[in-house]
């Protein structure tokens, strides 16, 4: 539950408007807040947006985060 809580916190950092999903513009907005370039943020968005529909849902975001925490197929 700590990981889910942390995932929710990070998702809210990105989804500042509380829409329930993250857009490419939301990621670009992080350019000043996180030490990543615009290209890297674009790359993160494309990597996490599994169905490539332009909307990064909480499920897609959390599966990317748990893979980061526990490795591929991490539980």
């Amino acid at each position: 539950s700590a990981v889910i809580e942390k995932t929710r916190e990070f998702f809210q950092i990105c989804d500042t408007e509380g829409k329930g999903f993250i857009t490419r513009r939301d990621m670009q907005r992080l350019n000043g807040e996180l030490p990543l370039s615009a290209d890297e943020l674009e790359n993160v968005f494309d990597t996490l947006d599994a169905d490539a529909n332009g909307y990064l849902t909480f499920e897609e975001f959390s599966s990317g985060f748990s893979e980061f925490m526990f490795g591929p197929g991490g539980t």
């Binding site: 990070f10 807040e33 996180l34 030490p35 990543l36 993160v44 990597t47």
Partner: peptide, 29 residues
């Protein structure tokens, strides 16, 4: 294999992204 290189680059950027979120959260009081 360029695909392998691309996947590794993506993983690196993802790690950077989540690590900077982690340090951003722990940095705040």
């Amino acid at each position: 294999d360029p695909n392998m290189k691309g996947a590794a680059a993506n993983e690196g950027v993802l790690a950077n992204f989540f690590n900077s979120l982690l340090s951003k959260k722990t940095g705040s009081p």
